[in-house]
Simulated assay, not measured.
Amino acid sequence: MEIPEFVQIKEVGPRDGLQNEMNIAPTEQKIGWIDLLSETGLSYIEITSFVAPKWIPQLADALEVSRKIKRKDTVTYAALVPNRKGLENALLANIDEVSIFMSASEAHNQKNINKSIADTFPILQEVAEDASKEGKTTRAYVSTVFGCPYEGEVQIDAVLHICDKLFAMGVDEISLGDTIGIAHPKQVDFVLDEVTKRFNKDRIALHFHDTRGMALANILVALKKGYTIFDSSLGGLGGCPYALGASGNVATDDLVYMLERMGIRTGIDGRMLAEAADYIQKQMGIPLSSKQMAIHEKKEGRRVN
């Protein structure tokens, strides 16, 4: 099997994980968790979102969290930014990378951003251009690439058109999202074949949710096609507030286990990762869904099924 020697894992738990939890984690707990994540060997952590607190109250303390974490030079600290106002706050927080977002389906874009796809582009272009002027890199999330909870199938031409527009406005990397966890290996194979014809693999990441337990299988397809950047959330924490029933991202700890067992380097210390997972599970008071955490809990005698 032709597979990469190294994969970069981008941890999105502090943002994508916490934003969909009913319980709002105290600021100090978020800071403590991010500081633990920074010690695991991760090179990228998306720590928060500068979306208006009325939309995502779980991350209303974005500026305070960003300012108080213990930063490491080896880690890129990113945050989600919806518009120029959000960018102003992200710059005050000295975020390393700005993450912008939109959907590949019109209905989901309207639900998520309250704008049409056409009306979203100028807003994102302003953010990307202004971020670049400030010396920040920009990453774009494209949601519902593999299916929409409102429209169903999403045409690949729509996805490619959006990616063309995003790269044209200066985005450095695009993360293709399976927002509701509907993708399967054959579909991923087709989509990535089309994406590969058009774009450099080094500028494309994959963002799989594990709603139907298919995320690792889909990642394996991407690995075999030479893709090496994957988003994940420690313990499988999170979901999508605008996609009912969608579970969290593929679990970072499960992904690291699979990759390392396959001989693919990640640079991540599994023991430190388990410590960070244990910390946030105890702080949030909810069992994390990853297989690695279930095994850990059973060994510790804390989980019986």
Score class of each variant (00 low, 15 high):
Lys133Asp: 07
Arg271Leu: 13
Gln29Asp: 14
Val7Thr: 07
Arg212Leu: 09
Ile182Asp: 08
Phe208Asp: 01
Leu59Glu: 02
Leu42Met: 14
Leu87Tyr: 03
Phe146Arg: 09
Val75Glu: 11
Asp210Met: 08
Leu92Arg: 15
Thr40Gly: 11
Asp253Phe: 00
Gly226His: 03
Gln281Glu: 15
Val159Gly: 07
Ala246Asp: 01
Gln187Lys: 15
Arg203Asn: 13
Gly170Ala: 04
Glu21Thr: 10
Ile113His: 13
Ala90Lys: 12
Glu97Asp: 11
Glu64Leu: 07
Ile31Trp: 08
Ile113Val: 13
Ile229Ala: 13
Asn23Val: 14
Glu39Gly: 07
Ile3Ser: 11
Lys186Asp: 14
Phe199Asp: 04
Glu106Met: 10
Ala158Trp: 09
Leu244His: 14
Ala277Gly: 10
Gly181Ile: 01
Gly86Gln: 10
Asn83Ser: 11
Glu153Met: 11
Thr120Trp: 09
Asp73Gly: 15
Met293Thr: 01
Lys72Asp: 08
Ile9Ala: 09
Asp278Arg: 14
Leu18Phe: 13
Lys197Ala: 06
Arg139Phe: 09
Leu220Glu: 14
Ser132Val: 00
Thr76Asp: 10
His209Pro: 01
Glu2Trp: 11
Lys224Asp: 05
Cys163Gln: 12
Asp178Glu: 03
Met262Lys: 12
Ser289Asp: 04
Asn89Met: 14
Gln29Ala: 15
Phe167His: 07
Glu106Val: 04
Ile280Cys: 04
Val51Asn: 09
Ala183Glu: 03
Ala276Cys: 06
Asp202Glu: 15
Thr252Asp: 08
Val195Asp: 06
Gln19His: 11
Val221Phe: 12
Asp210Asn: 15
Asp61Tyr: 00
Asn20Met: 12
Ala62Gly: 02
Val7Met: 11
Lys133Val: 07
Ile31Asn: 08
Arg265Lys: 15
Ser99Cys: 14
Ala274Ile: 02
Pro26Tyr: 09
Lys111Glu: 13
Ser289Thr: 07
Pro4Glu: 05
Ala93Arg: 09
Thr76Lys: 15
Gly213Phe: 03
Ile286Glu: 05
Val7Pro: 05
Asn114Gly: 07
Ile3Glu: 14
Asp172Met: 07
Ser99Phe: 11
Ser247Glu: 10
Phe50Asp: 01
Gly13Asn: 05
Leu166Thr: 03
Asp16Tyr: 05
Val75Ala: 13
Thr252Leu: 08
Glu260His: 03
Met22Cys: 09
Arg198Thr: 02
Ile31Leu: 10
